[in-house]
Design a protein around this nucleic acid. Structure first.
Lengths: 236, 236
DNA sequence: GAGTGGTCTAGACCACATC
DNA sequence: ATGTGGTCTAGACCACTCT
């Protein structure tokens, strides 16, 4: 881990622990530099990640403040906080229902998305995800076999990311998301509890490793009633 | 404008103009530094904004590449590219139907969102937006009068942002978005062409100025068929 | 080993806010 | 005037990729 990420994590934890209260001023950059024994620019980088995550606000001339998020609704089941699926912060139990787990030849669409050749082998997974017993999403996942290997049913039932990061020691760099809505078919209606003619929200996700290769093309489908996506846009 | 933003804009234009083709390698950092007469760190900052915008991918050890976006569907009417509403890149004509334009006292909800006191005066606007004649969104907007002044019908019909940035000379720093879905009522059904019991997508937006104050609380509602939101998440 | 991108530091200088 | 955050530079050192 790099220094600025460690500092950012530490301050983030302080905020979550309530050391710095909502709306309150954080110590000045200079003070934080002293505390963490780092340079001004490094501290700026650390704080910039917190700004991007919507945790703090910085104002030239006045200071750095913890963003007030208390009025956010926390009743939504699916929350992509800071863009990344924090999967309920690990607080709640997630169970997978595996519908499909097979190896197929990539068709044109999948090949295009994964930037591989048509016909190359890919894992094809369809799984339902339940949160404390209640279904909340259907995931359709394609993983190129030349990058992701030794995928087992236990990973599909649990965490694919853990297998990628822990077992294969690959580093995930970025996720390119596309959020749209579509008319549901029977699978979504049954699993997500939608009526016929009701739509679902789909998050298309193309995920890159830090070596630039695409390791995942996935479609996550949610009941529109449960969907919530939070993000911050910084104007530059 | 700062140097790194200018450089980023310039490279962005080159990409859009086709100078650097999709999938192609960009000149090395060092070459770009020479071209733009800047320091390595400044160039990194410029390129980092393009990474955040999903335009390029950087790989340690191999280079910087233009991201291939050719397989994106461009048939959606509403595209929030890079998070920010680029409003169709100004290519298509936008017309507003103003349903409500009044000054009211902030109720509890609005006061909480705008971080002002209950009872303070705010502009309350409800307008429909049409793209080449076809309705695509309903916007419910609240602007605190102590920040935004002299709002006229012409601004509501055109661009409120232009009034804020050009006339009032205020700088917009960030937008905090929350995307959810809700059951439609008559207004959305009529204007957006939804059937009863069909939902709409709502983008809740809280917008900050660079002095830290909140100048807008807005709800934009879209027919779920037309909605598309693109964003990039960088893992750090 | 050479090429390429990432992190960190030290310090100059600038812009904005508050008193 | 002072406090506070933002930008830019020069240069050291590190990590990864492609041969």
């Amino acid at each position: 881990m790099t220094k600025y990420i460690e500092i950012a994590e530490d301050i983030k934890n302080d905020i979550f622990k309530g050391k710095y209260l909502y709306g309150q001023k954080l110590p000045y950059e200079y003070e934080l530099c002293k505390k963490y024994h780092c340079n001004k620019e490094t501290m700026k980088k650390a704080l910039a990640t917190l700004v991007e995550n919507g945790l703090i606000i910085r104002r030239r001339g006045s200071g750095t403040f913890v963003k007030d998020n208390r009025n956010d609704n926390n009743d939504s089941k699916t929350t992509y906080i800071q863009g990344l699926s924090k999967a309920f912060q690990g607080l709640k139990e997630v169970i997978s229902d595996v519908f499909v787990f097979e190896i197929i030849a990539a068709d044109d669409t999948v090949a295009k998305k994964l930037k591989i050749n048509r016909g190359e082998s890919v894992y094809h997974i369809i799984r339902g995800r339940r949160l404390e017993g209640i279904p909340y999403s259907i995931e359709i996942i394609y993983l190129p076999m030349n990058i992701i290997s030794n995928l087992k049913m236990e990973h599909i039932k649990g965490s694919i990311y853990q297998h990628i990061e822990k077992t294969l020691q690959l580093k995930i760099q970025s996720n390119h998301l596309n959020i749209i809505s579509k008319q549901s078919s029977e699978l979504e209606q049954e699993y997500l509890g939608l009526k016929s003619n009701e739509p679902y929200i789909e998050v298309e996700q193309i995920a890159y490793l830090n070596n630039g290769s695409i390791f995942q093309y996935a479609l996550s489908r949610f009941n529109y009633r449960d969907f919530k996506f939070e993000t911050v846009i910084i104007n530059k």
